[in-house]
């Protein structure tokens, strides 16, 4: 028990560092958008614990992640550098996911197990199921995680994918980051039921609703789902209740449909603050170390911003490549 706790302490501290870096990076990219340097941004602020906690339960680079557009922390935790990520937003040469052909954070990074991200909601979930089918056919113990929002849970693809995965007991985790809004449409207008997780029963797999701002709960629940998937027991639906602190994207004005009081209330559950308090309280972190973590993150993001801004734009001639396989 003592040893387990110790491992968890180290892991928690590492996850906290990742969360601070992600928040710093996220804020910077939002600023770059406001400066007119990044065309569009979907912020992950409020989702970080769900993303970082779940990735921590995976074998990075072996397991595969089918992410969606709000999964900045997944990418960062899997190994993309802040400079690579910012290059995506400012559409510069050397952007590793798509060569700046796609929305920022969209594309593929096979080395890190990031296979594909389209920005048509829920369409990556059937593909994740195809990857899980492949893992099963090849008798690999690879686990596939399909990340999606509450909005995607209403799409037909989500239903078809869950049904198919359950029939064939595929090694896939359906990880729903429920922030309560599909752009502007609140949960009450998305579903007549209380949660997404309850639907799992109808497919024949476990469905677990958790506090997605509690990184320990996220980590532990994902560890269990990973174990199920790896040992051939089939899929799991995890619904992590998270918060969205910024508008849907930088193109959206959430003041039309969301009160500032509601957002302030949501900030009481800020996953970054909750983890910080926990670490300070348990003396895993002191104020001096915390200050250092924040300063380091700022320095890393400053350097990354500089590198991305100084990088050249992609060659226009290359934009005809790869329409067809060569």
């Amino acid at each position: 028990m003592e040893t387990n706790l110790k491992i968890q302490d180290e892991l928690l501290l590492k996850m906290y560092e990742e969360m601070v870096l992600c928040r710093t990076l996220d804020e910077r990219i939002w600023m770059l958008n406001r400066q007119g340097k990044a065309a569009i941004m979907a912020s992950s602020q409020g989702h970080e614990a769900g993303q970082i906690g779940s990735v921590a339960a995976l074998r990075k680079g072996y397991d595969q992640c089918y992410i969606y557009y709000r999964d900045l922390a997944v990418l960062l935790t899997l190994g993309l550098t802040p400079a690579e990520i910012i290059k995506g937003f400012v559409a510069k040469e050397g952007e590793p996911l798509s060569g700046a052909r796609q929305f920022p954070t969209h594309g593929a990074h096979p080395e890190y197990g990031v296979i594909n991200l389209s920005n048509v909601i829920a369409t990556h979930i059937p593909q994740a199921v195809g990857a899980a089918l492949t893992a099963k056919m090849k008798k690999e113990d690879r686990v596939i995680v399909a990340y999606f929002g509450d909005g995607a849970s209403s799409a037909g693809d989500c239903h078809e994918a869950m049904n198919f995965a359950a029939i064939h007991k595929l090694p896939v985790i359906f990880f729903c980051e429920n922030n309560g809004y599909a752009i502007s449409v609140p949960l009450s207008k998305q579903m007549a039921v209380d949660n997404v997780a309850g639907r799992a029963e109808g497919y024949g797999m476990p469905g677990i609703e958790i506090d997605g701002c509690d990184i320990v709960a996220v980590y532990e629940t994902t560890v269990e789902a990973v174990a199920r998937a790896r040992t051939g027991l089939g899929p799991t639906l995890i619904e992590a209740n998270v918060e969205r602190y910024l508008p849907h994207t930088s193109d959206d004005d959430d003041s039309i449909y969301r009160s500032s009081q509601e957002i302030e209330e949501a900030k009481k559950r800020d996953p970054l603050r909750l983890l910080r308090e926990q670490l300070l309280e348990r003396k895993i972190l002191n104020l001096k170390e915390d200050k250092y973590i924040h300063e380091s993150a700022k320095e890393i993001v400053n350097k990354a911003t500089e590198e991305a801004e100084n990088a050249p734009y992609p060659e226009t001639t290359d934009f005809f490549k790869h329409v067809y396989a060569e």
Binding site: G130, D157, E160
Partner: peptide, 19 residues
Amino acid sequence: PISESVFVGAGVGSAIIGM
């Protein structure tokens, strides 16, 4: 099952990783 989107999508998913 009668789920064209998932079996075409799963086909895409398995094709991109080597099947």
